[in-house]
Design a binder for these strands. Structure first.
Length: 539
RNA sequence: GCGCUUGUAGCUCAACAGGAUAGAGCGUUAGCCUCCGGAGCUAAAGGUUGUGGGUUCGACUCCCACCAAGCGCGCCA
């Protein structure tokens, strides 16, 4: 049952009775006492149609056959019309979950469309930061959700392996290498001073003193990429595709793309530089793509990269960017638009930064002072599950406060354990039921209408919402609704457990309740799977 | 200076396209272990939704102004 169905039905009842109606909405009720669905039709129709009284309209709806079939009662309160679903309709969710198992909630909403999600894409100049961690967790979860909803997802990491930053990396590593051998060498002030470069330098044997910085750059890149891949793996994030900027440049794609724009008359020369007329596509000023010194700005290869993505035939491109790139959204969208790709098909999600705390104390990050907590260090301290859970609990575009102390705790303060505990508890009950002789077939054939306690109905209703929660997450490209949902479901379950025995003297009731617990296990498990959080066997 | 984002309970956050008495969790306070795992449960207190106007049956939500915080405004990536 969906709100849209009810709305459609009401619309039909009204038009059948030749009643003129304007806009009204049907929505899930905000409170239990308001039933399952509510509509504001009575408030709305006052302004458009005075010839029918509220009472008459209510009885028209109440007496409709379809309404009578689906609802226990329909009543007016505070000007709203509230719909109370029949319990019998709710029991069907158990059959559905038991038969579909881990596939419950899957949909074909994405229709097999191809989507490319590009994220993390950190320069290979140093270890991954907390900010990258949040992007990684978000990108991975979003990929899983889209995949679950019928999209064909590719995860890609764009390696910015050219330019000034890479030059500095080579120079910095060479200096480290020479210093280890007692040769004095300066690390440029804007170079890389982290201890990790010293470790990498130690891996190189004697005899490379005369090699150029290019050699050191390449070596550092390989080493750092290996570390990055390791960190991502530990977080449970696997990319299908690694795309190198360096190779893009070598392929001549950048020149080719600029020619494409040129052919459309979107390129011009000014002050000895080459400009892209991005203002034609909504940017607030035109952008330089080739500087006076004839090297490209970052924008040129970026446009070429997106042209490449487009050519690979995706229906949707998703980029996860840090807030420092928020200002570039307009220009890259302009470019994509100019290249003939609909800009709505490029979704850029800004993943906000994370501030770390230890209790009350804010951990200030300073690269220069060497006060820096990497993603790896965070995972070592709180574990990948807790890290991911906290990263995914908030909307991507809202700033995240991450308290390491809470994430470490194994108490009720820490929601990740609360959820995992619910999962383990469900598992344990099923095990217990099995020991008491309740078989799979008993569960399947149980009489679910014995689940009459109001908490039981509440649990079933919540289980029923899961598919729409997931679909909504996919449609909005937002994963943050999943974690609060399982948290809430877990809470209801814990509360239920405390009050009622699942396996008791009454075999019939025991079977029905065991079936419900199995459904809880399936849904909590599926949700954890979508978030990429592990499902513990025991704790 | 211009632009974007944000401002909701002591803290961290919800509130679906403008709907009902603004909800959770943590923290605080008071309770609950012969019983499927207490990493759990029950209850209480806690609010002028940054401020001031406007739009209307109705505003956390939309509009205007102001205040505060963060980010962005390079021929840097």
């Amino acid at each position: 049952m969906k709100a849209e169905e009810i709305k459609a039905k009401i619309s039909k009842i009204l038009s059948d009775s030749k009643i003129y109606y304007g806009n009204f909405s049907v929505f899930p009720s905000s409170k239990k006492e308001f039933g399952d669905f509510s509509t504001n039709i009575l408030l709305k129709i006052r302004h458009t149609e005075k010839s029918i009284s509220s009472e008459k309209l209510i009885s028209l709806i109440q007496n409709d056959r379809w309404m009578k079939e689906n609802f226990e009662r329909i009543e007016e309160k505070n000007g709203f019309l509230n719909f109370f679903l029949k319990n019998t309709l709710i029991y069907s969710v158990i059959n559905e979950i038991l038969s579909k198992g881990q596939d419950y909630g899957k949909s074909a909403a994405g229709n097999g469309k191809k989507v490319l999600i590009e994220f993390v894409s950190a320069n290979p100049t140093g270890p991954l930061t907390i900010a990258h961690g949040r992007q990684a967790a978000f990108g991975e979860a979003l990929s899983r959700i889209l995949g679950f909803c019928g999209w064909q997802v590719t995860k890609e990491y764009y390696i910015n392996d050219c330019g000034r930053q890479m030059d500095l990396l080579g120079i910095s590593l060479k200096s480290r290498y020479l210093r280890l051998r007692g040769i004095s060498a300066e690390i440029p002030e804007d170079g890389y001073h982290g201890e990790y470069l010293n470790e990498i330098a130690k891996k190189l044997p004697d005899g490379y003193e005369a090699r150029d910085t290019r050699f050191f750059e390449e070596f550092a890149k390989q080493e750092i990429m290996a570390r990055i891949k390791n960190d991502l793996k530990e977080l449970g994030v696997i990319f299908e595709s690694w795309f190198s900027e360096n190779e893009l440049r070598k392929s001549g794609k950048v020149e080719e793309t600029i020619r494409m724009l040129e052919n459309k008359g979107l390129i011009y020369q000014k002050d000895n530089a080459i400009w892209f007329r991005s203002t034609l596509y909504g940017d607030d000023k035109d952008r330089v793509i080739r500087k006076k010194d004839m090297t490209y700005t970052y924008l040129a290869p970026d446009i070429a990269y997106h042209q490449n993505k487009i050519e690979r035939g995706y229906d949707l491109l998703v980029n996860l960017w840090g807030p420092d790139h928020a200002g570039y959204v307009a220009r890259i969208k302009a470019a994509v638009n100019a290249l003939g790709f609909s800009p709505e098909k490029l979704q850029i999600i800004i993943v906000q930064l994370t501030t770390l705390y230890r209790g009350k104390e804010k951990i200030s990050m300073s690269t220069r002072k060497g006060q820096f907590i990497t993603l790896k260090q965070l995972m070592d301290e709180v574990g990948p599950d807790a890290a991911k859970f906290f990263f995914l609990f908030r909307k991507a575009d809202s700033h995240l406060d991450f308290d390491i102390e809470i994430a470490r705790k194994k108490t009720e303060e820490n929601p990740i354990y609360y959820i995992q505990y619910a999962y383990v508890r469900a598992k344990h009950i099923l095990q217990f039921a099995k020991e008491k002789g309740i078989k799979e077939t008993d569960i399947m054939r149980a009489d679910f209408s014995l689940l009459r306690e109001s908490v039981e109905i509440e649990i079933l209703k919540k289980l029923k919402r899961f598919p729409s929660i997931v679909q909504k997450a996919a449609m909005n490209l937002e994963v943050s609704t999943i974690a609060p949902y399982i948290l809430d479901l877990s809470k209801t379950f814990h509360s239920y457990y405390q009050k009622f025995r699942v396996v008791n003297e009454d075999l019939q009731i025991s079977c029905a309740r065991t079936a419900m617990v199995k459904c809880l296990l399936v849904v909590i498990g599926a949700a954890l799977e979508l978030l990429g959080i592990s499902k513990p066997e025991k704790m």
